[in-house]
Computed example of a mutant assay.
Amino acid sequence: MTTPETVTEGAAVRAVRTMYEAFARGDLPAVLALLDPEITWIEPDGLAVAGTYTGRDAVVEEVFSYSAQNWDPFRVVPDEFLAVGDDVVVALGWYDATHRSTGKSFSARFAHVIRLRDGVVTSMEAIADTHPWREAET
Rank of each mutant, 00 (worst) to 15 (best):
T2G: 09
T3S: 13
P4K: 14
P4Q: 13
P4L: 09
T8L: 03
T8R: 09
E9R: 14
R14C: 02
R17M: 03
T18K: 05
T18Q: 13
M19G: 03
A22K: 00
F23R: 03
A24Y: 06
G26P: 10
D27Q: 01
D27M: 01
L28R: 04
A30Q: 02
V31M: 04
V31S: 04
V31I: 01
L32Y: 00
L32H: 01
A33W: 03
A33V: 00
A33P: 07
L34P: 06
L35N: 08
D36F: 00
D36H: 05
D36K: 09
E38T: 01
W41V: 04
E43R: 07
E43G: 05
G46Q: 01
V49A: 07
A50D: 04
G51K: 02
T52G: 05
T52S: 10
T52W: 03
Y53E: 03
Y53C: 05
T54K: 10
G55T: 03
G55M: 01
D57Q: 10
A58R: 08
E61P: 02
E62T: 05
V63A: 08
S65K: 11
Y66V: 00
S67T: 08
S67A: 15
W71M: 11
D72M: 12
D72G: 14
F74S: 13
R75F: 09
V77H: 10
D79L: 15
E80F: 01
L82F: 07
L82T: 07
V84G: 09
D87M: 08
V88I: 05
V88T: 15
V88A: 13
V89Q: 15
V90R: 10
A91V: 14
W94D: 12
W94I: 06
Y95M: 10
D96V: 15
A97L: 04
S101V: 07
T102D: 04
G103M: 03
G103R: 05
K104F: 01
K104C: 09
S105E: 11
A108V: 11
A108K: 05
R109Y: 02
F110H: 11
H112T: 06
R117D: 14
R117V: 09
G119R: 14
V120S: 12
V120A: 02
T122Y: 00
S123F: 01
S123A: 14
M124F: 13
E125Y: 04
I127D: 02
I127Q: 09
I127S: 07
A128V: 04
P132E: 06
P132S: 09
R134F: 04
E135N: 05
E137R: 12
T138M: 05
T138W: 07
